Simulated assay, not measured.
Amino acid sequence: MIITSFEKSSKNKDMISVFIDNQYAFSLPEEEYLRLGLYEKSEITEEELGYIKREVLIKSAKSKAIKYVSLKLMSEKELYSKLLSKGFDEEISRIVVDDLKALGYINDKIYAQKFVFERSKLKPKSKKMLRMELSNRGISDDIIDEVLDNFEYDEITVIERLIKKKFGKYDLTDPKIEKKVFSFLTHRGFSYENIRHGLLNICKDE
């Protein structure tokens, strides 16, 4: 096998893409590329290629991945996408994600529980919207169902709290204000029926 060319990665300027026999082979950090002296080589053996993938690439990707998850709780999909964005191959990224999952560094169920809890406190949304956001982050339907089913979340109560917080000083019987209330809450995924119910409850209390 012959190293025919190399170039800066289009995804990350600190990564070098290596081509063997005119075919893309792998990407690795520039410092590792220089340390291994690949720029001086013309030939590379199967053993050397295996070492690079097994020892150098996985070790480098895992080091970066641990740094990412130590700074922020991430889902499997988010970590995988992060590694890809840094120039690591799909194969290496998947191996590292699976390794960190096995070691407990990432756990989609814990991620989903924390996500739902924080959303409910900081920026409440409907369960429908929470489901969509978790799905977009790569959380499986089974985990989403389990987390949302076990989370005490009365949408009517949440709606009433949001209305009082954002529109408490306004006349809720004013059609213009009512329209704004519906617009604000439907944007967060709440149903027309539940919003109407929440509005009626507040107006009755007043």
Rank of each mutant, 00 (worst) to 15 (best):
S191C: 09
I177A: 07
P29N: 05
L71N: 15
E91W: 04
L38Y: 09
L162N: 06
C203Q: 14
K41I: 06
S63E: 15
K72R: 15
N194R: 10
L49N: 06
S85Y: 06
V97H: 03
S183A: 08
E76H: 07
S191A: 04
I92R: 00
S140D: 08
E7R: 14
I143E: 00
N107L: 01
K123Q: 02
I3H: 01
L162D: 04
E31D: 14
Y80N: 02
L162I: 12
K165Y: 05
E178K: 13
L130M: 15
E32V: 00
E30G: 06
G198N: 11
Y33R: 04
K59Y: 12
E178I: 02
H187Q: 12
I58D: 02
Y153G: 04
E76I: 01
S63I: 10
R188T: 10
R54L: 06
Q23N: 14
K125Q: 10
K62S: 15
K59V: 01
K72T: 14
D149Q: 13
I195A: 00
T157V: 14
I58C: 01
F151M: 07
L34I: 12
Q23T: 13
E46H: 05
S42T: 11
S81Q: 15
E48S: 10
S135E: 12
N201S: 15
I52T: 05
I106P: 03
